[in-house]
Amino acid sequence: MVYTLIMSIFYVLMPVSIVLAFLWAPPAEILGETSRILYFHVPVAWVAVLAFVISGISSLLYLWDRNNRFFILELKAYHAARMGLVFCVITVITGSMWAKASWGSYWNWDPRQSSIMVLFLIYVAYFSLYSAMRENSRRDVLASAYLVFAMVTVPFLVFVIPRIYPSLHPDPIINAQRKINMDPAMQLTLIFSMISFTLFFLYLYTLQLRAAILQRRIEERHHEKL
């Protein structure tokens, strides 16, 4: 029931967010019409962080849960990290497009660009590790331990480093003054967009998990028959 509700809300909210972003929200000063990418870039970045945190927490629970009280935690961690990586790539792409429009170049080695690239590489390394240990019986444990350490780096790379070094990046929405310097219409559109993308992530994540569970069930049946 909850799943159907999330699905229905997602199918409605996303087009509403798109229309709000293009037709209702006013363009920002200086940045002009290019600022509309904000309603896609920021939510996608938020979803990437959310996915990485989910993968880290699932891994932590997997390592802690010796009696297998929780179900498919290692799969949850793996798929969350995979989705986080996809959203991280989309964040880099949308950010580069915005950088080209605002700063004249796709890549400027800005602290925020560099930190997201480091984060991207950390998770690429996770997938290399995961696929390299295909035959290893302790793969899930080692991969989970790696994901926990990867999660620890997320707050530093996303929230701390870009705030320490001078950056070309627009002032973060959650800034040092704890003040949102934004037009109310823009704020509302951004909130709508954040909710839509979060639901989109949850929906895709659930679909992936369902497919993974199905695969596992089919494999188990196959082994039983043999």
Partner: peptide, 10 residues
């Protein structure tokens, strides 16, 4: 244009 600080509208 509405007037706000920071990301103002134009």
């Amino acid at each position: 244009p509405s007037v706000t600080s920071g990301m103002e509208t134009v």
